[in-house]
Design a protein around this nucleic acid. Sequence first.
DNA 1: CTGTTAGCGCATTCAG
DNA 2: CTGAATGCGCTAACAG
Lengths: 339, 339
Amino acid sequence: MRIQDVAQAAGVSVATVSRALNEPGKVAAETRTRVEQAASRLGYTPNASARTLRTQRSKVIGVVLPTLLNPVFAECFEGIASTAAAAGYAVQPFTTEYQIGRESRAVNSLLAGNADGVILVVSNPARSSALQRLVEARLPYVLAYNRHAKHPCVSVHNEAAVAELIAHLGTLGHQRIAMVSGQLQASDRARQRHRGYRQGMQRAGLQEMPLIEVPFVETAVQELASLLRRQSAAERPTALVSSNDLLAIRCIRAAHLAGLRVPQELSVTGFDGIALGEDLTPMLSTIVQPNAEIGQRSVELLVRSMAADAPLSAASSITLAHRFRAGESCAAARRTPSV
Amino acid sequence: MRIQDVAQAAGVSVATVSRALNEPGKVAAETRTRVEQAASRLGYTPNASARTLRTQRSKVIGVVLPTLLNPVFAECFEGIASTAAAAGYAVQPFTTEYQIGRESRAVNSLLAGNADGVILVVSNPARSSALQRLVEARLPYVLAYNRHAKHPCVSVHNEAAVAELIAHLGTLGHQRIAMVSGQLQASDRARQRHRGYRQGMQRAGLQEMPLIEVPFVETAVQELASLLRRQSAAERPTALVSSNDLLAIRCIRAAHLAGLRVPQELSVTGFDGIALGEDLTPMLSTIVQPNAEIGQRSVELLVRSMAADAPLSAASSITLAHRFRAGESCAAARRTPSV
DNA sequence: CTGTTAGCGCATTCAG
DNA sequence: CTGAATGCGCTAACAG
């Protein structure tokens, strides 16, 4: 089913069909109707590749993100996909599983002319060679969740968010507050959030505790549980500040396995605000980021830049508001431990 | 960066470049090296649209599914994406949010020549007009999770799984077992699982309880909680069999809000086996389906059929094994209630 | 307002 | 083993 068939059926030229379908205003009403009817009767759908080849615009936005198994990114992706669809763009996702090599491969595919623009979540904007290639190719892009002075980013203020959270925990009487995180190396968010922890602890006049870095999610629960079991009540943290919600959920499980009640004996907080957290018992106490909106705003930025044919600069970066959801996994410290 | 530039740089014709890159065996070793070096030096990536237009194969697999916010589908999608990538295919997802209209729109986009094949999860295979159009267009496809005698499907045996579960609950002493489900109309899985419930209850000689149909996930928790609160201990179910894991999690929350302990006072089971369920407290008791494998097998089927250029029939359908994960949200009934 | 035509970048005959 | 030439389906000049 080609444009030619429609032209023949409607008794016009291919150019007229193309115009009738793409710029209806430029065609006589009667002709247009004839074309439209012929097209719909034949079930004609314009060939995307031919159109892309001709116009040099694919109407596709590439998306590079760590994984869709983490609801944070799934939520963001839905925001991207629906906003993109509304603007007439399809979306093509690539997951990196936090591996640098896969970032590059994804960008390669996207550079094959498949995408008009790219939204990406990378491990380290400062060092991503994939990002570098994107810049060199002058393909419009926006970073989501990442935060970097030289790139257009849509994110929240991670440091501030965690620092505020620490202050809040302080007012709840917590003094032994430990941070739990995935590999710092794999994520600039994790590093920023950890900086927020240090900052918050310092400001609250509390002594920093060693970072609990959990390398693999698969073994996280066991590791955390045995750590909690090993520690005496006096040395154990009274609050665990987790770098993300999925990890916070595992902290809660670990506490349970170690015989600690949450939040009575151990407070646990998350970061991300995944929807599921609200349906858990205890409801997750967490810093909520507007995940769908991060996706939406990224697309808006990208679409605007593609329309204006002007590259985005770091000046376009957007910092969205975060908020703390009290939840139920976090409570006042039971007694003031000696320092 | 076109093939022409590479040809010039390597001092050969475009045809030779094309061959050197796509059919290395058909080119002299020395020539090939020269081409490869020129290509990599210039950072050449073949234009996907041009190639697609020429070969009539996009190397893209379309994926139509309800939502990526439900980890079931996210897990399946990851299975699809990684298997597809290994076979040299990219993947293009469309979410329908369980709306028929969006199924059609997705298929339309895919029919625009963008996809060599499609994997889809539809509401109702028997009535999906989108599916119908796919068949008419002779575009290879596989249904995932759906189950229908006339289409190639990759799924588990939903009826049997729930029936077995009911039998198990029976041996645990449960008699008042109710099923909780999303809208039956929106999903054939839900209907099949409900049939399994009826079958299981009948076989166990238990009296069926009215289906608790929860139309909107947003209000599910409140609805379920008030239902549980309204019922006396004698009329309340002792076990809630949920049609999917996300709903089971909400049932647990609702029980908590209604002051019922899970599993002591109310057993709750799910269906899907999302990874997260294992990290919850109580760990979700659920029927595990191999979500990633459902995706993987769907791709394998599709790829094989595309290679053979032979359409898939219902005879290719695959039923994968499910299993029950005991978890912690399900326990023996406390006392035998009078019937 | 409509038709003719060129060419987007590539893979693939067909010659040599 | 390599090169020249064709056309995939479409849109955008340009002409009428």
